[in-house]
């Protein structure tokens, strides 16, 4: 399932003196099965952009297509679109409301009018995706869970709608390294094994370098860069000007090259860097 934006303009408080352009002439296409990293400084329009993917915001002008359906048309059933494009907002645990985990995670399917039996099936499956046990948790209050569990329950609430596209806005914000790794691994698994298209909004260059096939960089409401991770991180200077960095390991390779060591700079992970340095400098011999 693809998402396509054509010349989208959007501004908050349109028609008032304080109107601010949040998106300016954005066109992009996200194909089925991609893992896209969406990065950019705060206020660059990332959150505004993703809210166009499921019709929470409508463009002032331009078109948005999901699976070929035009979201800007009046009679489009947005509810159906929102089942297909699941969206996990920042700090999703702050949106929990159910008396039980079952009620909360089942909220989406229930809104979709599914049978009770089907709802239970979906909840079980969604909780399993995020590494939680349905039998243990179904009757517990989500408010009594630990911080990390709460976030997973909230993410399961979106997965229970069986979306084909999953959009996550900083899903690891505020978590410690262990919690971050677990969530990221689960997202990766959803993509690789579940075949879900993923759009990951994040501030962590290291994370997108590890997971995303494609990076989209937003700056002041426009798409500044769009390409593979290597292509985008190849523009280190440009990223720095925007107040963004490249992964530390990539930066190191650039610095080594600048200091006369003939290394390849197309490096995104520590393991790659290790292999490259050994290739150039030889096994265990230092000059």
């Amino acid at each position: 399932m693809s998402i396509r934006l054509e010349n989208v303009f959007f501004s908050y408080l349109e028609g008032t003196p304080t109107s601010q352009a949040a998106l300016r002439n954005v066109s992009l296409e996200i194909e089925d099965g991609e893992f896209v990293g969406l990065i950019g400084p705060t206020g660059s329009g990332k959150s505004t952009l993703i809210q166009h993917f499921n019709g929470l915001l409508k463009p002032d002008s331009g078109k948005v297509f999901v699976d070929g359906v035009d979201l800007t048309l009046k009679d489009t059933q947005l509810r159906l679109i929102r089942q297909k494009v699941g969206m996990v907002f920042q700090y999703p645990e702050h949106q929990l409301f159910g008396e039980t985990v079952l009620e909360d995670v089942g909220f989406g399917p229930r809104n979709g009018g599914l049978s009770e039996e089907e709802i239970v099936k979906r909840v079980r499956e969604a909780l399993a995706y995020v590494g939680l046990d349905y039998e243990v948790l179904k009757d517990q209050s989500p408010f009594e869970l630990s911080g990390g569990q709460k976030r997973r329950v909230a993410i399961a609430g979106v997965l229970a709608m069986r979306p084909s596209v999953l959009v996550l806005d900083e899903p690891t914000a505020g978590l410690d390294p262990a919690g971050r790794e677990e969530i990221l691994a689960e997202i990766k698994q959803l993509h690789d094994e579940g075949g879900i298209t993923v759009v990951l909004v994040t501030h962590s260059m290291e994370d997108v370098a590890r997971f995303a096939d494609r990076l989209i960089v937003m700056e002041q409401g426009t798409i500044a860069l769009d390409g593979t991770s290597l292509e985008v991180f190849g523009q280190a200077g440009r990223l720095k000007d925007m107040g963004l960095g490249v992964p530390e390991i990539t930066e190191l390779m650039y610095e080594l090259k600048a200091h006369g060591l003939d290394v390849d700079t197309e490096i995104l992970t520590v393991a790659e860097a290790e292999a490259e340095i050994i290739r150039v400098m030889g096994w265990g011999c230092q000059k």
């Binding site: 190191l252 050994i278 400098m281």
Partner: peptide
Amino acid sequence: QVTDLAERLRKRGF
């Protein structure tokens, strides 16, 4: 990441 790399290279004899 740099510390990680340093550790790996050290193990390789650097």
